[in-house]
Amino acid sequence: MYKIESKNVDFYYGPSQALKNINIAIRSNTVTALIGPSGCGKSTYLRLFNRMNDLIDDIKISGQVMIDGEDIYGKGINVDSLRKNVGMVFQKPNPFPKTIFENVAYGLRVNGIKDKKFIEERVETSIKQVVLWDEVKDKLKKSAFELSGGQQQRLCIARALAIQPSVILMDEPTSALDPISTAKVEELIYELKAKYTIVIVTHNMQQAGRVSDRTAFFYLGELVEYDETKKLFTNPKQERTQNYITGRFG
């Protein structure tokens, strides 16, 4: 069974169609990269999986998006629970104006967990998972804004991990980071694969090649090609894909 499946998905912002008939199936414990030129609908598509687009007025969705075989836009779906299961990391690090500890504990608290010991343990494991523990263990009570950009982004990943989702969505998670922080995050993605299903939007083709198992190429709201990363980059079936990865447009 697939972890995530989208069947004939169309998406509209008001009158303009941003996604056209997208069909993708993603297996558990894989990393899937979404690539394509700016404005082609990658973020829109990614945000379908945790229903983040719901916040925008005047949108329309048709088709099906299934996670673990369940239509997440179906009746009786609780969006909060869905989002608890599908974590998200954003383009710019966006910690809350709270302490480092409270940032990671946030997801636990809003989901009704009160056990102090449990929270402490979970915060520690999550921060260790993103290899940030040694850097912040002495300043957990300090504001998260005091960390560097790269540290903040790893903290945001830890924040997403703390509530133990099974899927993690990442929208250009390294585009605001320096090369060293980027490398650290990439390494992290590779390790997280063992436990999570990851979907990542990236503009960096080397990054897609390095971290992902499969890659989907979007162009003007259409899914042009979806294949194993190696194949897509070495032997694309579509000419448009070829042009894009060789840098002829976009």
């Binding site: 609780n78 909060d80 809003v110 989901n111 009704g112």
Partner: peptide, 11 residues
């Protein structure tokens, strides 16, 4: 337990 918590959040 989780269902209970979700319900409470909703309420």
């Amino acid at each position: 337990n989780e269902i209970k918590i979700t319900k409470r959040k909703k309420r």
